[in-house]
């Protein structure tokens, strides 16, 4: 046995990271925790409330509704964006001058500031002056996203698909181009159909990047705020009030800091939990 001398000075090098994480994550989070368990009437005076706010939030219909709407929204956009993104990535050229053209076109929606995306779609979909809204009404479809919940949902989903499918495309494309040519040659020799090549080569080889793509899309869509507040503001009524919009209404609209803080923590743990379960399941398969 060779015994290593332990150098405590190594801790010194970790200090910058500890400070960074403390100031950008832990300390702000602790402030929220602080509000979640206490009541305040300003002037830095706090009263201990225990789990009251958590019980209130978890038992409120308002939270349940927002949560259900959120789950529905995230499920729908994942079900559209992931298959669509893969399909587009598969149909993109692998070499030649069109590669860069396609990549730039794909990256374009990702470069637009989020509130601009919301504003664009708002104007685009307005029933009286917007190209989409006006055209739909002109061909006899009754469409008004400012008054009909269904129209508002369709517009919101279209906007998210337009904005974010590119991310899935780019990640899937990166996964596809990393597959060595020999796999395609072997598949040809084995007489594999196009579908078999997709199922047994392309999809398994894209698994890692797709895991990342689904995780990113899940988290971002679960926390969608900017585009949505500009497009519908959560309306008509509460029909597109997803979790983050509801949270802002609660915290800054009603200034109910206690319940809002409790809701933030629940919200945070839900995102964390789903991500962890999903990632663990995907990676567990990997090791078999």
């Amino acid at each position: 046995m060779i015994s290593k001398s332990v150098k405590q000075s190594a801790w010194f090098f970790v200090i910058p990271v500890v400070f960074l994480v403390a100031f950008n994550a832990l300390i702000p989070l602790m402030t929220v925790v602080n509000y979640a368990f206490q009541e305040t009437f300003g002037d830095n005076v706090f009263f201990w409330e225990g789990l009251t706010w958590f019980e209130q939030v978890l038992n409120s219909d308002r939270f349940h509704d927002a949560f259900l709407r959120q789950i529905m929204f995230t499920s729908i956009i994942l079900l559209i964006e992931v298959p669509l993104g893969i399909a587009i990535a598969l149909s993109m050229p692998r070499k030649g001058p069109w590669v860069s053209v396609c990549l730039v076109l794909m990256a374009l929606p990702l470069l637009i500031p989020w509130n601009v995306v919301g504003a664009m779609w708002n104007i685009f979909a307005l029933p009286d002056i917007g190209l989409l809204g006006y055209s739909l009404n002109a061909i006899g479809i009754d469409y008004n996203f400012t008054q009909q919940p269904i129209s508002a949902w369709i517009t919101t989903i279209l906007m998210d698909v337009w904005h974010w499918t590119s991310l899935v495309v780019l990640l899937a494309y990166a996964g596809l181009t990393a597959i060595p040519e020999a796999y395609y040659q072997a598949a040809k020799i084995d007489g594999a159909s196009k579908w078999a090549v997709f199922k047994w080569i392309q999809l398994p080889k894209m698994k890692r990047v797709l895991t990342i793509a689904i995780l990113l899309r899940f988290m971002d869509s679960f926390m969608i705020y900017t585009e949505l507040i500009v497009l519908t503001g959560g309306g008509p009524g509460n029909s597109t009030t997803l979790l983050s919009i509801d949270l802002v209404k609660l915290a800054l609209g009603q200034f109910d800091l206690g319940p809002a803080a409790a809701m933030s923590l629940v919200y945070f743990f839900v995102v964390l939990l789903i991500c962890w379960v999903f990632y663990t399941l995907m990676m567990k398969n990997e090791q078999q």
Partner: peptide, 24 residues
Amino acid sequence: QVFQFPVIYDTMTVFDNLAFPLRN
């Protein structure tokens, strides 16, 4: 043809790998 690097279908069993060209 056998290539420089082994080409296998990762998600299949050994049996299914060997059966793949026949099933196709």
